[in-house]
């Protein structure tokens, strides 16, 4: 009788242990979904506005505080973007001044299409100067193998 009682208690314990094990399938699902989202979205976030930028051997990497930099993009068709937001050319100066507030210690990154006339980039540089930027960084892709 005592043997049977002991056996019963053991089966209950084993059963309890089995049911206490957490079902981690939803966790795996969420983690894998997040992983796939990151794999897909990260290149898009890094790329920002897609612009055919020039190449340069001496392009240096900005890693520190890169997310804080203000990126002013100009595409081949002349459309302008501050970070990921499109801006009307007439409102650029004010929009840039507003966006640059609090970032005065950082240069502005200009991401210009390689086929644009330099005069358009010069106009942007002048606006950057007017909003108080002490320098600009010209976005360039480092050549393969350099």
């Amino acid at each position: 009788m005592a043997k049977k009682q002991l056996f019963n208690s053991l089966t209950i314990q084993a059963g309890a242990r089995k049911s206490a094990m957490a079902d981690i399938t939803p966790l795996v699902n969420v983690a894998l979904c997040l992983l796939i989202v990151f794999l897909v979205v990260m290149p898009m976030i890094q790329e920002g506005i897609p612009v055919d930028i020039p190449e340069a051997d001496s392009a240096e990497e900005i890693v520190e505080r890169a997310t804080e930099y203000l990126v002013l993009s100009i595409k081949e068709d002349g459309s302008l973007f501050i970070d990921l937001n499109e801006v009307h050319p007439g409102e650029l100066r004010q929009a840039l001044a507003d966006a640059y507030e609090g970032k005065e210690d950082l240069p502005i990154v200009i991401k210009g299409a390689r086929n644009l006339p330099y005069s358009e980039i010069l106009a942007l540089i002048e606006i950057c100067q007017n909003v108080g930027a002490s320098g600009v960084e010209l976005f360039a892709r480092r050549r393969e193998g350099s």
Binding site: I24, L27, V28, A31, L32, L34, L35, F38, L39, M42, I45, Q46, A56, S58, A59, E60, E61, I62, V63, A66, T67, Y69, V71, P107, V109, I125, C128, Q129, A133, S134, G135, V136, E137, L138, F139, A140, R141, R142
Partner: peptide
């Protein structure tokens, strides 16, 4: 599987910071 996928996720979140490649220029005040 959960260990591997969570480790990969954390790895991607940490290792892929935003990197810019630029030529710097000063503007005269």
């Amino acid at each position: 599987l959960a260990d591997v996928s969570l480790s990969l996720l954390l790895g991607f979140m940490v290792i892929t910071p935003i990197i810019f490649q630029t030529l710097s220029a000063e503007l005269p005040a």
